[in-house]
Nucleic acid binder design. Structure first.
Lengths: 198, 198
DNA sequence: TCGACTATGTATAACGC
DNA sequence: TGCGTTATACATAGTCG
């Protein structure tokens, strides 16, 4: 939509990318707003720039709640998959490992018969389990994304190799024609030689 | 952006509104996708139509390519899973879509001030939301596994193609040597011809 | 209701400051 | 870095089948 057609792929130059981000972000939000008004629907847009800045648009309050939950989830995943995991672990109330947390949970649940956990205890446990769950899930997602990405890249490399090899073959076919002509010429000469020298 | 300028306010005619919704929703998602690729940022778009249908877009740089490639797959599978949902949802107290469930939840939460939901109601809702969440997550996992598997297979095919091409090249190199020998022979003969005939 | 078309309005890439 | 301008590409409102 500008002076010339733009391929849809990551803009390599940083400043251009930044400028495009600004413009297109505004454009996207404007469109989202128009859509929500014209068509009377709820629309939410969340944009997280690679510098970690969060921009969002939402057409109505009730959605904001969902988005906030969604948002915090995404951000949690991001933080965790951004390898802050180890550092952040201290936050999770001193359980050094997932296994320890689970063991403690089991022990406490078994003790329920004797003692009975308070609601507060249970809430606490639930909270920690939930955190652990989020960690595990985001870790899984992260790993799966990594392997998918990896496979994708490997595919691209192979595609390129294939292309090169095909080019090679094309070149060699040309050369082959040249050599065939030489060979024919050799035959011709051989005939002449036969006729004239012997 | 059309034959004439359109005021930004709710389109009163229902069918026009529906058509505009379809077109603009696609447009918005396209723009969101472009933004995420061009500017290397994460973008999420959530649209809830007034009929309770949920549409969403979300990007993840590493996944974008894969998502595009498997768009058709996803579309097809969406339809299938929609059917499954309808069938299975009878379990989940008659909500036909996830969006409907969410909307109902929101409505009920908004009504809390007036009425106050009982703990039982909340437990019920929580249960349904959790089930929905599980569905969504397992669906995501499924799709990602499918993508990974598919990419892996594509990789294998490319590997094989590469092998064939390499064999071809090896063969051609041999032939080339033969032709080079022919050419040398031609030269030799040409020399002889020069020496002996003139 | 649906897709295809097209005239027109918008968004925006490149440029300049 | 950010804003204004301009030439283009793109999105889409209305229309037709």
């Amino acid at each position: 939509m500008g002076r010339r057609k733009l391929e849809i792929k990551r803009i390599s130059e940083k400043s251009s990318r930044q400028v495009a981000f600004c413009k297109r972000r505004k454009g996207l939000v404007k469109k989202a707003n128009e859509l929500s008004i014209l068509c009377d629907v709820d629309v939410a847009v969340v944009i997280i720039s690679n510098r970690g800045r969060l921009h969002e648009f939402s057409s109505n309050n009730s959605l904001t709640g969902i988005l906030q939950r969604y948002e915090s989830h995404v951000e949690a995943e991001k933080e965790i998959s951004a390898e802050i995991q180890v550092a952040e672990h201290s936050k999770y109330s001193g359980f050094t490992t997932m296994g320890e947390l689970l063991q403690t949970t089991e022990r406490q649940l078994e003790e329920t018969n004797d003692d009975g956990l308070t609601v507060t205890d249970l809430i606490h446990l639930e909270d920690e389990l939930q955190t652990a769950l989020i960690q595990v899930r985001s870790r899984k997602t992260h790993l799966m994304l990594e392997s998918a990405k990896d496979l994708h890249e490997k595919g691209k490399v192979l595609q390129e190799e294939k292309k090169h090899l095909e080019d090679n073959i094309a070149t060699m076919k040309k050369n082959r024609q040249v050599y065939e002509m030489s060979a024919d010429f050799a035959d011709l000469l051989a005939q002449r030689v036969t006729l004239n020298l012997f």
